[in-house]
Structures are given as C-alpha cells and as structure tokens.
Amino acid sequence: MIPDVASQLPALSFETAAPPPARTAPAWLAARYWALHDVWVLTRRTLARVITTPEQLVNVTVQPLILVLLFSYVFDGAIRLPDGGNYREYLIAGIFAVNMGGTAQGTAIGLAVDLSTGLIDRFRSLPMSRATVLIGRTLADLSLTLVAGLVTAMAGLAGARRSLARTGRPRTGAAVRLFRRVGRNMHRDPGPRRRGRPGGRADGHPAAVTDVERFHLGQPDDSVAA
C-alpha cells in the first residue's frame, strides 16, 4: 500500500513570495533596473557553474599556456614572416585571438545546450527581460576570456623577459610596430589636412616621429638583407 504522501509533506505557504515591486520609480527606469538585475543573476549563474565543475577552467588557464609554449618552442623556426622579423612578436596577439574565438564557440555551444534542454523556455516563461539570457551568458564568458587573456599575457611577459636576457634589447611589440607603420604611411599622405600642420616639419613629418623611430621603421632588416 502506498502511504499517503500528501499528509506527510510539510505545509506549503506562499507568504514568502514577495509582493510586486513598488512602482515608485518611472516605468522605463524600473525596466532598466530589472534588466540589469536579470543580467547580473544570469552572469552569476554561468560563473557558479565554474564552481561546481572546475574543469571548465582548464580552457582558460592550461590551454593558453600550452598554445604559448607550443608556438614559441615547438614550432619555433618553422614559421617565417614574409618581410623578415621574428614571428614571436605576433604570437601573443594571435593567441589572444584564438582564445576569443574559442570562448565565442563555448558561448554558442552553451546556448545551444540551454535551448535543447528547455532551460531557455523556462527563462522565457518567467517575467524577466528576454534579452538578458544572451547578455548574461556573454558577460560571464567574457570574464572567463579575461582570465585566459591574463594567463596569455603573463606567459608572454615571462617569455619576453627570457628573450630580453638573451638578446639584450627589448623587442618591439607587434601592436606597436603596426601602429607605427600605419603612422608612417599616414604622414606620407600628401593630403591637404596634414599640410601646414602646426609643429610639422618642413618635409611633412609630424614632430612626434623621432629620428630613432625613423631608423626602426624606415631601414630594411639588415639580417634578412644579408
């Protein structure tokens, strides 16, 4: 005989369910407040999953390290840049890009899983703002990407220290080189806006470009030319 389960269950009261929020603020302000609130709740949800399944952290800690080591030591010398120079200077930026792509993929897969298990249907049947399902997850994954970026940057800095100790001079970062090249091409542009710019020199170079920089940018790489 099946026991009468209902009589054993503790009484369920609904008194703790909160009354609807007081409508003192204007409606649009309240809507924005609750949207932010929902985003925060859902961001915490994705981050809380990291606590119950810490394996997820492997993606953002071990994987970038492995990539840095793999491309700097194992594949070292296998990749040549067309205009000479050391590809390691582009390495860290490249691994940032790989991490970002990987996390975006994780976001997409996570959303697909939520969709197929019906979790998103649950959210959609709640009185919450609907866009927050996407925003919450994106923010959480973005914060995981920041961890990956930090790990990559530290690995890159550690590698740079070693290479500095070996060669004795700092290597110009890829980003800095890129900006300088863009800058050089721009100041060669004979557009009317640049002509007669205050502080510009007679030959059209902005004052900011120093001779040292012109040496770095303008000279072909001796080692490759040789």
Binding site: A18, P21, A48, R49, T52, L119, L126, P127, M128
Partner: peptide, 24 residues
C-alpha cells in the same frame, strides 16, 4: 517536458536563481 533546470547548478542554486529572476 520543455521547461527545465540547470544541470550544473545545485537544486538550491536553481531555485534561488529562478526566484531572483521572478524579482524576489
């Protein structure tokens, strides 16, 4: 059938989360 809970969260965390989304 179609409304579900988050498998990776604890039962309590699921209920608290949904409570907060219901504006408690």
């Amino acid at each position: 059938q179609y409304a579900s809970v988050d498998e990776f969260l604890t039962g309590r965390a699921n209920l608290v989360m949904i409570g907060e989304l219901c504006r408690l």
